[in-house]
Design a binder for these strands. Structure first.
Length: 897
DNA sequence: CAATTCACG
DNA sequence: ACGTACGTGAATTGA
């Protein structure tokens, strides 16, 4: 069975452009939203229709044979926006890479090509689907040709139109669609039609007279204004009909076999998708059918993409017990190390082997071999801090080796960290992605070597070694390019003196872990459980029925349909039931407050009691988080498996969780030190605002001081409400203020919020100047920087879309502040670590929570640490205002507050 | 797998 | 008129 699908490429890319508003772009800032939307649609069509032959047609150039008939054809059309026109070559490249035939022909439009092919297909009784958003193509429908008309705007669903559906919808045959256009005209193509005749009138006339020609012969039967209009526009109607007629005799040099499609060529498609940063689509590309797809592989039009297998083979060796001795001698010349591992959590990941690459050699060492006595020199080399190692994500490698009983040291250049500094919003998450970014030959994806999800299986050593060698080869090629960029961006100190040393410190903290008492959690969980049960039954009683309170849908039905409470806010999928909404509803029905309490406890129970219990290692009673050092856009760390940066503190019930976090040795103490107002202090420094600096130089309560200045009152006159407002304004300033955001936060009107902001800027003029200047800087450079030269690109600063541009502007204001604060605590960590080592202290740094460091400290070091830690933190970076760190300690993290 | 909600700084 | 506060991770529901 053959099935031909033809796609109006121009039409689809336009709809995708206006339908997908997400700010998608390539690494170098070219927009890709339309290409993305096109791909989504294409993938859906492939899945739904499973065509055996495909053609994507485009309009070639501006002028067609229709202009000879009517020079004004398509006149007055808006010029294609440049953000879209740049996407045409990207789309065409992608279609080619997917192995799909595309065609355009001078003087003809996409419609004409499709019409001609549809005629041929119809004659051969070949099932044919035409995809477009343009109603014109409905004229092509026939017994074998169906039109999938795009619904609404954007690239959502399609409405299939055969002759029956057209009859049902318009009461017309497909060919009468041409008459319809002749009468109605088409403003987008500048086809005039008959002025004053729209769809309704045109349909009425056609139902009566059948065709434009017949209508014109019978104008005497019409009356009034309509008769006048039609008689006055006879020629226009006939011309319009001619223009709307799709030409079905285009000379096509296409061969049927050229259109055959047997599934995507992933080898060719994946690199292109990566370049477009469509990482999420990669898994959605269906594999070519290996057996019967063979004949479609010989597409003469498709440019052969560079394939890993086509390149000269590498000198890959698989080590065994006999060759380990020789390999040991080679170690000093190893430049890149790469581990083949499996699993997201590095504390639990499997390790199957190591690739050691230097000069032209690639040595693969199966993990098992490292246990043999002959491997001792390799283990020594691995843990030698003086033996430098380069690689991709050495932090992770360190952890995986650690849990396999192997020590690691000497990380010199981590390509993942370099990539992160060069562009922290970089989406490349593995070596393959990086290879694409640096324009190296494509690598085979890990998924293709290993299989994904349940299908995962380690391949044989030869396959693994070859795959690993290609990655090591790529890393080797990427590093010099990164060195150059780091140099050019003046990031050498940030990289070599901050991020690289920090990476080892983080690994140490993670390996150390923090002790958590499961008994404490279980006891607290038991109390929560009783309360949750009680709240649950109260909720059921109030609702008059049982339902799943955790289901927002069911909860919404109960609150807003059954109990009739007023819906405040809608989400994409129904009623919103978030805490803000519920708090507004609380006065209206008793059940609401109970639901809020239930939500709070359910969250504590599932995430922090049950979730944390699962992460405790029974042998050591410790949890080991994993800090992602190359993830956030601002330079902060993030914490996973478990996240120890969001342990409850704001509400007392949750705060009790912290009692379970204890020292791992008897007699020791938990000590915590946190920066006070670090972001506002950074702002004071960066903005050089006199008032803000003065406030910190005198160590004033910054929110009270802000309230005094904004409201023009004395210290004594500042009430709690004024301080609260001032605090919200200060937060807003750090986030990149907007009146709307502040109004939402304070529950005041936008005008009132705008007034606050105006007052604030009148007082803190240096801050106002900074906010202005930083946005200008972002516009000029395309990025903003922190004090330590960390950068973040903001391409959307130029967006025409207000929301996108505003977001970029707020980000420009916030990132240097949040990012510099992140720089500072990272500096402090490196310095604290150095001091602990220099002094030979036993105290250990365990956690970082953005502005806080947590340690465990033996009795005899407590007094020292109480001054050493805050002093080091305060001296981490010299600003024009003092940094301040508060320290506290206790038997557990709850007490160290 | 997306959407919703909520925990933290 | 537009429509969000900045930065994260995890659990749950319901396709």
């Amino acid at each position: 069975m053959t099935k031909l699908m033809m796609i109006d490429g121009n039409n689809l890319i336009y709809r995708a452009f206006y339908g997908i508003t997400a700010p998608l772009q390539t690494a170098d800032g070219r927009p890709t939203n339309a290409v993305y939307g096109f791909m989504l649609m294409l993938l859906r069509l492939l899945q739904d229709e499973k065509p055996t032959h495909i053609l994507v047609t485009f309009d070639a150039g501006k002028v067609t044979f229709r202009h000879e008939t009517f020079s004004e054809y398509k006149a007055g059309r808006q010029k294609t926006p440049p953000e879209l026109s740049t996407q045409f070559p990207l789309l065409k490249e992608l279609i080619e890479a997917l192995g799909i035939k595309q065609y355009e022909l001078a003087n003809y439009e996409a419609d004409d090509i499709m019409g001609t092919l549809a005629r041929l297909a119809d004659e051969q009784e070949c099932e044919t689907i035409i995809v477009s958003g343009d109603q014109d193509v409905l004229q092509l429908a026939s017994a074998h040709v169906r039109i999938n008309l795009l619904k609404g705007k954007g690239v959502g669903d399609v409405l299939p139109h055969g002759p029956e559906q057209i009859m049902e919808r318009f009461g017309l045959t497909p060919l009468q669609i041409i008459d319809l256009k002749g009468l109605m005209g088409d403003s987008s193509d500048n086809i005039p039609g008959v002025p004053g005749v729209g769809e309704k009138t045109a349909l009425k006339l056609l139902h009566e007279y059948g065709s434009v020609e017949n209508l014109l012969e019978n104008t005497d039967k019409l009356k009034g204004k309509l008769k006048e209009r039609i008689e006055d526009n006879k020629e226009s109607a006939l011309l319009s009909k001619k223009l709307a007629t799709i030409f079905r005799e285009v000379p096509l040099p296409l061969e049927w076999d050229e259109l055959a499609y047997g599934g995507a060529d992933r080898e060719a498609a994946v690199p292109v998708l990566r370049q477009l940063q469509f990482n999420s689509l990669i898994e959605k590309i269906p594999y070519a059918d290996g057996e019967d797809g063979a004949e479609t592989d010989e597409d003469p039009f498709a440019e052969p993409a560079p394939k890993a297998a086509d390149r000269p083979p590498l000198d890959v060796r698989i080590a065994d017990e006999d060759t380990l001795g020789e390999l040991a001698e080679f170690l000093p010349r190893v430049s890149v190390i790469h581990a083949e591992t499996h699993g997201d959590n590095p504390h639990h990941a499997e390790l199957v082997g190591l690739m050691l690459h230097g000069e032209e050699r690639y040595d693969y060492v199966p993990f098992e071999l490292l246990k043999s006595p002959q491997a001792a020199p390799i283990l020594e080399w691995l843990e030698d801090p003086e033996a430098p190692k380069n690689g991709y994500d050495l932090h992770r490698l360190d952890l995986v080796l650690h849990w396999h009983g192997i020590a690691f040291a000497g990380a010199a250049f981590d390509s993942q960290l370099a990539a992160y500094l060069i562009d922290p919003t970089e989406t490349a998450t593995n070596v393959s992605g990086l290879a694409v970014k640096y324009e190296l030959p494509a690598l085979t994806e890990d998924d293709e070597v290993y299989g994904r999800g349940a299908k995962f299986a380690w391949p044989e050593a030869e396959t693994l070694a070859a795959h690993s060698a290609r990655k090591a080869e790529a890393i080797e090629a990427i590093i010099p390019k990164q060195r150059e960029l780091l140099e050019r961006f003046e990031m050498n100190r940030l990289f070599f003196e901050l991020e690289m040393p920090l990476s080892r410190i983080l690994a140490d903290m993670e390996k150390q872990g923090i002790a958590v008492n499961p008994e404490d959690l279980e006891k607290l969980g038991g109390e929560f459980e009783i309360e949750i049960k009680r709240l649950q039954s109260e909720i059921y009683a109030h609702a008059g029925m049982e339902f799943n309170i955790n289901s927002t849908r069911q909860l919404g039905e109960i609150l807003f349909d059954k109990l009739g409470l007023p819906a405040k806010k809608k989400t994409k999928t129904g009623y919103s039931t978030d805490a803000k909404v519920l708090e507004e509803l609380a006065p209206q029905h008793e059940i609401v407050q109970i639901i809020l309490q239930y939500r709070q406890l359910a969250k504590l129970q599932s995430t922090y009691i049950e979730g944390l219990l699962k992460e405790i290692r029974p042998e050591t009673r410790k949890v080991h988080t994993y800090y992602r050092q190359a993830l956030t856009a601002t330079g902060r760390l993030s914490s996973q498996y478990p996240n120890l940066q969001n342990i409850p503190i704001r509400l007392e019930e949750g705060r009790k969780i912290r009692k379970a976090f204890v020292p791992s040795e008897p007699g020791w103490t938990i000590l915590a030190a946190d920066y006070s107002q670090i972001e506002l202090r950074v702002l004071a420094h960066i903005s050089d605002d006199a008032g803000l600096k003065d406030a910190f130089l005198h160590d004033m309560d910054i929110h009270t001081k802000t309230a005094m200045d904004v409201f023009g009152v004395t210290r004594e006159e500042v009430d709690s409400n004024m301080r609260r407002s001032a605090k919200a304004v200060n937060f807003g300033i750090v986030y990149g203020i907007s009146d709307y955001g502040l109004s939402q936060n304070l529950g005041i009107t936008r005008a009132e919020a705008a007034n606050f902001i105006e007052q604030y800027f009148a007082v803190f003029q240096g801050v106002q100047q900074y906010m202005h200047d930083i946005v200008e800087e972002a516009k000029k450079d395309g990025f903003v920087k922190t004090m330590l030269e960390r950068r973040r690109y903001l391409p959307e600063i130029h967006a025409k879309n207000f929301a996108l541009r505003s977001f970029a502007e707020r980000t420009a204001m916030n990132t240097p502040i949040q990012g510099t604060a992140a720089d500072i605590i990272k500096l402090a960590m490196v310095q604290v670590d150095a001091v602990l080592n220099e002094r030979g202290l036993k105290s250990r740094m365990l956690l970082q929570v953005h502005d806080e460091l947590v340690f465990e400290v033996p009795e005899d070091e407590l007094e020292l640490m109480k001054t050493l830690v805050p002093e080091t933190m305060e001296g981490a970076l010299k600003l024009s205002v003092p940094l301040k760190a508060d320290v506290s300690f206790g038997a557990n993290w709850y007490e160290a507050k």
